[in-house]
């Protein structure tokens, strides 16, 4: 997608998050109902990308759950790490993508609405920390692969049917 000399692409899997610094870029593939949330500090050029699956850690039915799976705990951990690296919340901005509903599903199972619920949850949590969402590409019924460049602060979004866009 982006062409940056010498930079590597850091890959983030499902239910995971990572930090990126130039010249590297950071990427996650195949977002469906999951959300890819990028938090970045413009001056320090540090960014984090979290690939969250579920809105809320209270949904966990077991104790030792992977914190990166849930929007609330994942973002808490991401912020802690970014703060440790000297990024204060007031300077952080966010770009988010994902939260689709891949299948239309008639029986009204609340779990199938997980995409929109993920989007709402991530935005609520970010606003709680007073982090502004600068751009988003959420909802719909398409899968997305996203890649963030911490220098240009651009989020490249690739889809199967609607090509590529940059937010």
């Amino acid at each position: 997608m982006t062409k940056i000399e010498q930079g590597q692409i850091i890959k983030v899997g499902m239910a995971d998050w990572k930090i990126v610094e130039p010249p590297d870029t950071i990427r996650t593939s195949g977002l469906g109902s999951c959300i890819g949330a990028v938090l970045y500090d413009e001056t320090k050029q540090i960014a984090a990308l979290a690939h969250v699956m579920l809105p809320d850690s209270t949904m966990a039915k077991s104790q030792d759950a992977n914190r990166a799976k849930f929007a609330d705990t994942a973002l808490e951990d991401v912020l802690e790490m970014l703060n440790k690296k000297g990024c204060s919340n007031s300077r952080l901005k966010a770009k988010i993508a994902g939260g689709a509903q891949m299948f239309s599903y008639s029986s009204g199972n609340e779990m199938m609405r997980i995409g929109p619920r993920n989007t709402e949850a991530v935005k609520e949590i970010l606003s709680h920390y007073r982090i502004k969402v600068i751009a988003e590409d959420t909802g719909g019924n398409k899968g997305r692969t996203i890649e963030f460049n911490p220098v240009e602060k651009t989020l490249h979004i690739r889809t199967v049917n609607q090509g590529e866009s940059i937010i």
């Binding site: 499902m14 239910a15 593939s29 195949g30 977002l31 469906g32 109902s33 999951c34 699956m53 579920l54 949904m59 966990a60 039915k61 077991s62 759950a65 992977n66 799976k69 689709a100 891949m102 299948f103 239309s104 599903y105 008639s106 029986s107 779990m111 199938m112 997980i114 019924n141 398409k142 899968g143 997305r144 692969t145 199967v160 049917n161």
Partner: peptide, 27 residues
């Protein structure tokens, strides 16, 4: 079985739709 639904898209995005229940319990 529910009424089936067809999607044409990235495999990763599609399969994650089947992991929602499971992901609440374990990894």
């Amino acid at each position: 079985p529910s009424v089936p639904s067809l999607a044409i898209d990235m495999a990763g995005a599609i399969i994650s739709a089947g992991l929602i229940e499971i992901s609440q319990v374990g990894d």
